[in-house]
């Protein structure tokens, strides 16, 4: 059976850690990291990467456009 899988790349240094991407994810993939970036923000990351479906909801919500989304279909 085919499976669609996604992944995101967060531009960590541009992320302000606002967290609006976290509840927008229908697959509960995202969380704010315990680590901070150069500005001191707890940046967004994939806490549960296997669940990502590449829907781009997080990227659409991100006010700072720091999320790039990829998706691939595996047969």
């Amino acid at each position: 059976m085919a499976k669609i899988k996604g992944t995101i790349i967060v531009d960590i240094e541009r992320c302000k850690g606002c967290g609006v991407c976290v509840p927008s994810c229908p697959a509960n993939v995202l969380a704010l990291s315990h680590h901070v970036n150069g500005k001191g923000y707890n940046y967004s990351y994939m806490a549960n990467p296997d669940a990502c479906i590449g829907c781009a909801s997080c990227a659409i919500m991100c006010p700072d456009s720091v999320i790039t989304v990829y998706r691939q279909k595996f047969e």
């Binding site: 499976k3 899988k5 996604g6 992944t7 790349i9 590449g54 781009a56 990227a59 659409i60 456009s65 720091v66 999320i67 790039t68 989304v69 990829y70 998706r71 691939q72 595996f74």
Partner: peptide, 15 residues
Amino acid sequence: LEVQIKEENLVYRKS
């Protein structure tokens, strides 16, 4: 299964 980071798999990027 790992999603390959390449143009054909791109869904969304900064305008």
